[in-house]
């Protein structure tokens, strides 16, 4: 474990039981590292396991196998009680600011709750000394403290969610689609706020989103997931400039371009079909059922994630080291 990494995940697997004898292969052998003060983006279609991966890392789910090392400590098999001090170091921001805030608590209580839960303050009055500056820091005011979540717009609620996650001064924040429920004009506000915090506190983000241009903008490294596995991983600009995996190419080719002239010139290379079920994932390379370049070997052997130079890693039989 390098001391420059806040998070190291090795061969992480999370399977869920679905009915009798059926297993959902939500996360299947993911290995990633996240440097201190850096942002790792995870992209992929819905059902690719990116949220399950994040939730297993933060130990909301118990991993099936693999290893999670947070700031040098192995937290993979810790019991909830042992885990508590480490929970302070990792926090989460959720997608839906309507569902992730308790409707019966005031904003002050929502933001103060983590402080009280971790016994960092003696009482609510003491908590206020931390809550008020935090409210202002996320662009709300002291006057908002006594209101309830339903009195706020989506963007303001997401600010409350951010305040709640950051009041504990965590080192790692998992952002699971933090802007996809927000209006376009508000998304940039929230992204700038997250970037400001990162610069100020040296935070590390695991940033999950399906908006590929936003992921590129915020991330240092980007991993592309397909059916529970990483198919490509690289420095962010490199992966967008030089995608190697056919799935990454298809994904990037599907992103609408906000420029009508370029959009008309774009080669139309729609990816065919839907993502298959993670209950019985395809054999070999899991993408072979949709891949335009699939060869017989693709259905038989699973390609390894190999480094093809400059830390650009790809799992595809067409690209070997």
């Amino acid at each position: 474990m390098s001391e420059h990494n806040i998070l190291e995940v090795k061969d992480l697997t999370k399977h869920f039981k679905a009915g009798k004898k059926q297993i959902v292969h939500a996360v299947d052998g993911i290995s990633v590292t996240l440097g201190k003060g850096k942002t790792l983006g995870l992209v992929g279609e819905s059902g690719c396991g990116k949220s399950s991966c994040a939730r297993t890392i933060i130990r909301m789910y118990d991993p099936t196998s693999g290893q999670i090392i947070l700031d040098g400590t192995d937290i993979t098999n810790m019991k909830q009680k042992e885990l508590k001090p480490y929970r302070k170091k990792m926090q989460m921001i959720f997608q839906d600011p309507y569902a992730s805030l308790n409707a019966r608590m005031t904003v002050r209580d929502i933001i103060a709750e983590p402080l009280l839960a971790h016994n960092l303050v003696k009482n609510k009055e003491e908590a206020n000394d931390l809550v008020y500056p935090m409210l202002e820091r996320v662009g709300l005011t002291k006057e908002h403290a006594n209101r309830y979540a339903h009195e706020f717009s989506g963007g303001q609620r997401q600010r409350v969610g951010i305040a709640r996650a950051l009041i504990l001064e965590p080192q790692l924040v998992i952002c699971d689609e933090p802007i996809s429920a927000l209006d376009v004009s508000i998304q940039a506000q929230v992204i700038n706020l997250l970037k400001d915090f990162q610069e100020e506190k040296g935070l590390s983000y695991l940033f999950i989103a399906h908006d590929l241009s936003m992921v590129r903008y915020v991330s240092d490294d980007v991993g592309v997931m397909y059916l529970g596995q990483l198919v490509e991983m690289s420095e962010a600009d490199e992966i967008y400039r030089n995608p190697l995996h056919p799935y990454t190419k298809g994904l990037l080719g599907s992103v609408p371009i906000a420029n009508p002239k370029l959009a008309r010139q774009k080669e139309k290379s729609s990816m065919e079909g839907d993502i298959p079920s993670p209950i019985n994932p395809p054999s070999g390379c899991r993408f072979h059922t949709r891949c335009p370049y699939a060869r017989p070997e693709c259905a038989q052997t699973t390609p390894e994630l190999v480094d093809v130079g400059n830390g650009h890693r790809v799992a595809c039989h067409l690209h070997k080291a």
């Binding site: 303001q156 209006d183 004009s185 998304q187 940039a188 506000q189 700038n192 915020v218 906000a258």
Partner: peptide
């Protein structure tokens, strides 16, 4: 103009902050 400025394109310089529209509707 504000809407167009607040979305990053694939070329967006990462060191430059996005220009959001302040406030809410």
């Amino acid at each position: 103009m504000g809407l167009l400025n607040s979305i990053p394109d694939m070329e967006q310089d990462k060191a430059v902050r996005l220009k959001p529209i302040p406030g809410s509707p």
